[in-house]
Amino acid sequence: MTSYETGADESDMEMARTIDVRRADKNIDAAAAWIADVVRCQPGQLVDLSRHEDGGNRICIRIERTGHEEVDGGDVSG
């Protein structure tokens, strides 16, 4: 399972950071591009965005990617 958090620099998408809503547009576009790339190029992937932390003016959305065979029966928070 691979994960990173929105707000990462475009040059290092796997690095975990938090998203700053004051510059959310750039972060969101970068995250969307990364997700779209996964969707287009890697069949069977599940990208889960359901986990997040709300820190007032700082929202952290955790992006987790998993292959078809790796989804277990456990719950995720969200």
């Binding site: 997700i35 996964v38 969707v39 890697q42 069949p43 069977g44 992937q45 599940l46 990208v47 889960d48 965005l49 359901s50 986990r51 997040h52 998993t66 078809h68 989804v71 277990d72 029966g73 456990g74 719950d75 995720v76 969200g78």
Partner: peptide, 19 residues
Amino acid sequence: GSLALHRVRDPRVNVVNFP
């Protein structure tokens, strides 16, 4: 709310799951 619901998906199908 649970990724378990996606266990039966076709291996060719991509999923993006929001809360």
